[in-house]
Design a protein around this nucleic acid. Structure first.
Lengths: 229, 229
DNA sequence: TATATTAGCGTCACTTTAACGCTAAGTAAC
DNA sequence: GTTACTTAGCGTTAAAGTGACGCTAATATA
């Protein structure tokens, strides 16, 4: 057996799929790379783990220094280890995804990138590395998770209407959900709490404003998509 | 920015939660360590990634060389990165779980371990490292997954009776499931195929033998546990 | 032949679900 | 004001799914 320190180790990085929802569109944040490899191409934000950091620390550092975001929903996704995934050498990436409300942050391209931009998940450019694959795993995870666990409110303002929540679900799942059945399920599950106030200034009837119920017990609801059948 | 090779890297390992089902008991395979750290204590099998390997390769190498197993169901679980999880230094472990049919393999302790043994998941000894935690994540994953995806047959012989499958579910989920309703769900979902043969040599009525239906379309069934309600 | 036990099939009340109708509340046009 | 239009909120119903459980068949053994 080799001594402990004799093992060669691959580099360890995190890659981030940052989802945002705005104007009825689900978007992902992409970085245009300033340096090789994949110079001038779009990729997911990511970075190398430093020895004293946890993976979550690394993600938070990247979110903060490259994108100016903090205190966002963040979850580990999967670890990507294809030997050829990075042309610089062996790099293993622990994929994560984050859900953020774009209206809360002013995105700035750090010094590392030419540009940082939101892209509609339906119209992504070509991505460097294996980032297309990581993105697809993340989108799939988000879609499954939202069916049985309340992650949607991470993407909305603190107060929102049922219609707004409904549109978010339809957008993420890319399917139509009956408006009235959706309302019933969400309310029966006590997923959200009526604040008693209404959203003013709209053209038609003023909808009631809700907020997320943090006391929600797990497994209390399940949304079916038409494809379930 | 540092040059690529200047980053220090933690060691990368895999840890394996190997589930087996035998005599109406769900078990996990544990190794008794020959060396420090955690000498003479029980731990999950695991090992370091070698530079030319994928994570799956590493898992398969360990399964084969330490345990004599090959071609088993194997799935990545989660990546565990607590900085203090290994007293030797910074080791990040990618947890995996495997499902095997113990009757297919003769387990042998490799030269690395004092002993290798199956332990009933209900009566585990103390485990070294953070392996108790990894085990719990794996068990939870197995329990959720079996509700909507057919993994059970990995633990059974190729031909099995509905009663055997039913007992497996009750054992993994640690709950009673109505025998007749279970049968109806499994059959309605076309989860299994009747082979037309029967298991002989039993004391009472001879049950029909089934095998897994590999054509099963996803999302075609869902088992409810009493706690769902 | 009777008994005990597991296997397989069926029934029913209750709950959940999908589809969709109807009215209320608001704005804008006249 | 009145009418038209649109979104919001509430309700209804038929069909499907679910849980609880009864009944009979098949087999070994006493």
């Amino acid at each position: 057996m080799k001594a402990f320190h004799e093992y060669k180790n691959p580099s360890l990085a995190v890659d981030l799929v940052v989802f945002g929802y705005h104007n009825n569109t689900l978007s992902v944040l992409l970085l245009n790379r300033k340096d090789e490899p994949y110079k001038d191409q779009w990729t997911l934000p990511g970075g190398f783990l430093q020895m004293e950091e946890t993976l979550r620390d690394t993600c938070e550092r990247i979110l903060y220094t490259k994108l100016g975001m903090n205190k966002v929903f963040l979850e580990q996704l999967y670890t990507f280890d294809e030997p050829e995934r990075d042309p610089r050498g062996r790099v293993i990436a622990v994929g994560h995804y984050a859900l953020i409300n774009p209206s809360k942050f002013q995105i700035v391209a750090g010094t590392m990138a030419n540009d940082v931009k939101w892209f509609n998940v339906k119209h992504l450019p070509a991505l460097g590395f294996d980032h297309k694959h990581i993105f697809q795993v993340a989108l799939q995870r988000l879609r499954s998770k939202i069916l049985y666990y309340p992650v949607g409110f991470e993407l909305l303002d603190e107060l929102f209407t049922i219609t707004e929540l409904h549109e978010l679900y339809e957008c993420i799942l890319e399917t139509k959900l009956d408006r009235r059945n959706f309302r019933r399920k969400i309310l029966d599950a006590a997923y959200i709490i009526n604040t008693g106030t209404k959203r003013e200034g709209l053209k038609n009837r003023h909808p009631e404003l809700y907020r997320f119920n943090k006391q929600l017990k797990k497994n209390s609801f399940h949304i079916n998509t038409p494809e379930d059948e």
